[in-house]
Design a protein around this nucleic acid. Structure first.
Lengths: 205, 205
DNA sequence: GACACAATACCAACCGGTCGGTATGAGGAG
DNA sequence: CTCCTCATACCGACCGGTTGGTATTGTGTC
């Protein structure tokens, strides 16, 4: 981390600290301390604290986007298997403390949706953008399995994100990653039922 | 609200303001202003700001507990119908802005789980306690419909809360209550599928 | 007059943000 | 090559306002 420039160090620090204590409770000074950077550097790179939040949300989109793009859940030939492998992948990420596995933009938007429309929009773009990466596989699975229903691939993709966000909150309240994993299990079962797939052991990893 | 004592006015103000802007971003002074009460009164009734949060979480449990206890979703004879009616009831509550329909303890615990174990515990008790009120109906439905599975009534009850909490976050990000209702629809469909119930129009109101 | 309750004045610490300044390095002119 | 200029990156003391919390003084009701 030492070779990174001040801007990137601040973005990484923001994601780490905000996930642990929330956005409003995180001060600019603390961020600078954590990043090993001075306050002057902070306001050189970001006009305001809110601007940092917007940049961090976009940075979160990029880094997690790259993580999911190269994740192994894309390999199955069957689109439904890919969707289920995605769910399993998300479950695997539920390790350690909530501060480690929870979602930066989910945490931030909950606090800032009323005070900054720029932050809200950046967080929305992150969540909805990630959901969008699931739509192709879901749509293909709908066609392949000839599933009929009043719901759309988009709404199911967004529902997976809602379940994950909710699971993070339950985990924060209970202090247990297991309760979060329980919800993800229910989500997996829901998708199996939707597509008439018999309950399966996970195929990947 | 004028006839209420200072303590209750502060609790109501806390729930209203925190839902709109979050816990950390809400100052004691603002709470006092909103409640029409002085700072002296605040610290007479609550030792610290955190103590107010704990009291507000318990107050939230009581008031929402009363709301749900007298709600009409308990009337159907079939336990599964009661569970589905509960889901419908929750969906009906998704009116107006996120600040109006979102959950005080869900918002608060997300910010305070790392800094105050008392707040965390009070919020956990509220969420888990509410989930517990669903367990009897779910258990009865499991018996009546002879459903087999690896999941428990408790885990399904908690999953409903996770979906709702997640739906609140999606609503805050999107600024739309409709997207939250979409997730609740998926939750309802999941429960119908779990119990082999044909998709139904809602029975209660 | 005892006691719960509330109003006001006040405090030190901390907040986001500002500002004058320095370090470094690229590019052009001579 | 040397010198000058300019832009970018960064520094840290400082500012006014706000924070959670305290101390003191009423005031209404048994």
């Amino acid at each position: 981390m030492l070779k990174l420039d001040a801007r990137t160090k601040l973005l990484n620090a923001a994601i780490e600290v905000v996930r642990a204590q929330g956005y409003a409770a995180t001060s600019v000074d603390e961020l600078c301390r954590k990043a090993g950077v001075t306050k002057g550097a902070f306001f050189h790179h970001f006009e305001t604290k809110d601007a940092l939040a917007v940049a961090a949300a976009n940075y979160w989109s990029e880094t997690t986007g790259a993580l999911f793009a190269q994740a192994p859940y894309h390999t199955p030939a069957d689109p439904l298997d890919r969707v289920l492998a995605y769910i399993d992948f998300r479950k695997d990420l539920l390790q350690g403390t909530p501060a480690e596995f929870s979602c930066f933009v989910g945490t931030t938007v909950q606090e800032a949706f009323g005070s900054s429309d720029e932050i809200r929009a950046a967080c929305k773009a992150s969540i909805f953008g990630h959901a969008e990466t699931l739509v192709a596989d879901i749509s293909e699975a709908i066609r392949r399995y000839k599933v009929k229903g009043t719901w759309t691939a988009q709404s199911l993709a967004l529902h997976t994100q809602a379940v994950l966000q909710g699971a993070f909150i339950i985990a924060k309240a209970s202090g247990s990653a297991t309760t979060a994993a329980d919800s993800v299990n229910h989500l997996r079962r829901y998708i199996e039922l939707l597509f008439n797939r018999k309950p399966t052991k996970r195929k990947t990893k």
